[in-house]
Amino acid sequence: MALRASVRRAAVVLLSAVTIVGIFASPAQAGSWDSSLSGVGPGFESRRWYQPSSSTGTTIKFTGCTGGNTVVNVTLYKAVNNFPDTDYTKAAFTKCFASPTSTSTGNWNDHGAGDYYFVVNDGGVGSTVSVRYLVVSY
């Protein structure tokens, strides 16, 4: 009997600890992916990702940018069936050109569930750009 009581106590302590961690943990983003870019030209489209309705928005980070300019414009798009895709505000990334470890960040509000992608230097403006590390969180 003593063994069962100690196992029960251990289970209660473990469950309590898990509950406390769950209460104080901050909500995580629904998903993310990372990659890099090498010499992409104006109009380059990223891979697409599905963003659920539980998303808090989209964050795109570029670290270590190089290229012919000192700015790269990033536009978030939502794919729409049978209509032109919806574009959202452009983010001008400049800080990522300062050094290989400098990061530029763009944040977009939640625009509902759907397939998303970003376009680099939309509209054909700018030169090629390389990005050492990029992260998309949603």
Rank of each mutant, 00 (worst) to 15 (best):
R4L: 08
R8A: 12
R9K: 08
A10V: 03
A11E: 10
A11I: 05
L15H: 04
A17L: 15
G22D: 12
G22A: 12
I23Y: 06
F24S: 01
F24H: 06
S26P: 02
S26L: 14
Q29K: 06
G31C: 13
G31L: 13
G31N: 13
S35K: 02
S35D: 15
S36N: 14
L37F: 13
G39Q: 10
V40G: 03
V40N: 01
G41R: 01
F44A: 08
F44E: 05
E45N: 13
E45I: 09
S46T: 11
R48N: 11
R48V: 10
W49C: 00
W49E: 01
Q51T: 10
P52D: 08
S53Q: 11
T56Q: 05
G57Y: 00
I60R: 01
K61M: 06
F62V: 07
T63L: 07
T63Q: 07
T63M: 09
C65W: 01
T66N: 08
G68E: 08
V71E: 11
N73A: 11
V74K: 01
A79E: 13
N82L: 14
D85L: 05
D85T: 02
D87P: 01
K90T: 14
A92L: 10
T94D: 06
C96F: 02
C96K: 09
T105A: 05
N107G: 00
W108P: 00
D110L: 02
H111G: 00
G112S: 10
G114W: 03
D115K: 04
Y116G: 01
Y117E: 07
V119I: 12
N121P: 01
N121C: 05
G123M: 02
G123N: 04
G124D: 03
S127T: 15
S127W: 05
V131P: 08
V135I: 13
V136Y: 04
Y138N: 05
